[in-house]
Design a protein around this nucleic acid. Structure first.
Lengths: 138, 138
DNA sequence: AGATTCTGTAACTAAAATAATTACATGTAC
DNA sequence: GTACATGTAATTATTTTAGTTACAGAATCT
C-alpha cells in the first residue's frame, strides 16, 4: 500500500485553494487533516520545492503558485514521493540461474508499464477536479 | 513503494514453468530468489489458495494449474496482496471542516481510477509474456 | 518400520518505511 | 521585545515487510 502523503498533500492544497483570502497556519491545517503540524510543514516544504506553493518563513499561510487547473495529482505525487519506482523487485537473485539472471530486467519492463498507466491517470486529474468534486459532495 | 511479493511470486511461477519435468523444492527456489525457504512456502501457499498452482504436503515440488497464457500479473498480484486499495488515505479528517468532511470520498474516486489503470495493465500481461521475455533476454 | 526430507504454519525477530513528536533556530508582526 | 509562525533536525513510535526458528504432519527411500 502506498503511503498517505499524496492524500494529505491534496488535502492541504484543497484547503489553501478554498481559503484564498485566509492565511492558514500549519496548526490549523493539521487540525483539519488530523495530524501533527510538523507533518504538514514537511509536506508543504516538499510542495514548495516542487513549485506548487510558496511560503514565507515565520509568516502564517501559504499561497498556491499555479492555477488549480494546471496542478495534476501526478505533480503532487512526484513532489512528495521520493521513490521513482512503484514496485520493488527482490535483489541479488541467483545469477547462475537463467530465471534469476534475467528476472529483474524482465519484471522491470512490466512494472514500468503498469506504473506509467497509473501515472497517466494521475496526470489526468487536476486539483481543480478535486475542488469541484468537494463542492458537489455536499 | 509496493512490496516485492509480486516480483518474488512471478519469479517462483517462472521457475516452475521453465522446469515442468523437475520438482523444485522451496529450498531450491529460495536459492534462485535469494531469500528464506519459508518466504517461498508462504507465497506458494497464497498462490495455491488463488488456484494458480497445486502442491502436496510433504512432497517436493509444485505444479501450475493453469496455462501461463491464462495467468495474468493481476491474478498473481491479487493472490499475494491482501490490501484491496492501493493508496492510503489519512483517517479521521475533521468532519467540521468542509474539506475534511468530504476529502476521503473525493480522493477515493481519483485513487480508484488510478488503481484501475494500473490493474488493467497488470491484467494485460501474462506469465507467458514473462517467460518469453526471459528467454529472449539471453 | 524407521530414518530422512519435504511442506505447511505458527511464532518470533529483524529491518525498513511511515508517521508522530520534541526541540529549537530563525523569521514576522504588532 | 514579546508572541507566534515557519523550517528542519533529531528522536520515538507504529506499522509493514522480510527473515528466521521451530515443529507437526505427509511423503519417500531403504
Amino acid at each position: 500500500m502506498i503511503n498517505s502523503r499524496l492524500a494529505v498533500s491534496v488535502h492541504i492544497l484543497a484547503l489553501i485553494a478554498t481559503h484564498p483570502d485566509q492565511a492558514l497556519s500549519s496548526d490549523y491545517i493539521a487540525g483539519s487533516v488530523n495530524t501533527n503540524p510538523v507533518v504538514i510543514r514537511r509536506l508543504i516544504g516538499s510542495l514548495r520545492q516542487a513549485g506548487l506553493l510558496s511560503t514565507v518563513a515565520g509568516k502564517t499561510g501559504a499561497t498556491l503558485t499555479k492555477d488549480p487547473h494546471d496542478v495534476t495529482l501526478l505533480m503532487i505525487y512526484r513532489a512528495v514521493e521520493p521513490k521513482e519506482t512503484l514496485f520493488s523487485i527482490h535483489d541479488q537473485p541467483n545469477p547462475a540461474c537463467p530465471v534469476g539472471r534475467d528476472i529483474q530486467s524482465t519484471l522491470n519492463q512490466s512494472f514500468t508499464r503498469a506504473q506509467q498507466a497509473l501515472e497517466a491517470e494521475l496526470g489526468n486529474e487536476t486539483l481543480s477536479d478535486i475542488l469541484h468534486r468537494l463542492v458537489r459532495a455536499r
